[in-house]
């Protein structure tokens, strides 16, 4: 089997399992209500971690590159209440322009 197909099959199978394991493990049981306060915070935590890792992560180090300028432009765009697609485009164009300079 080629490396491509091996990767596609393994990653696909394990990802299906990872996505399902939480809800299958719990079945009909509910999480303790005490945990609701923490689960409420999981989305903002995960999204902010995704923002910084996708912007500043290099190969085992933190880096400052055109992605950071893109994020800054996105922040300004969000402050100005621009639609989502404008924000994403502004970030991409900013990073691309800086790279082209």
């Amino acid at each position: 089997m080629s490396a491509t197909w091996a990767s596609v099959i393994i990653v696909g199978a394990v990802t299906i399992g990872l996505k399902a394991i939480g809800s299958l493990a719990l079945q009909d049981r509910q999480l303790p209500p005490r945990l609701n306060g923490m689960i409420e915070l999981l989305a903002p935590v995960m999204l902010s971690a995704l923002v910084v890792t996708n912007t500043f992560a290099g190969d085992h180090k933190l880096v400052l590159d055109p992605r950071a300028a893109g994020l800054g432009a996105a922040a300004i765009s969000i402050l100005l209440r621009a639609p989502l697609l404008v924000t994403v485009t502004v970030a991409a164009v900013t990073a691309a322009l800086i790279r082209a300079l």
Partner: peptide, 27 residues
């Protein structure tokens, strides 16, 4: 600039999740 588009999308989603002081601290 695809690599800069990802964090921008997540950032826009993050802003929609800020509902209280606690969510700011957690983020």
């Amino acid at each position: 600039g695809l690599d800069a588009a990802f964090p921008a999308l997540f950032f826009a989603l993050l802003v929609g999740q800020i509902r209280s002081r606690r969510t700011v601290v957690a983020a």
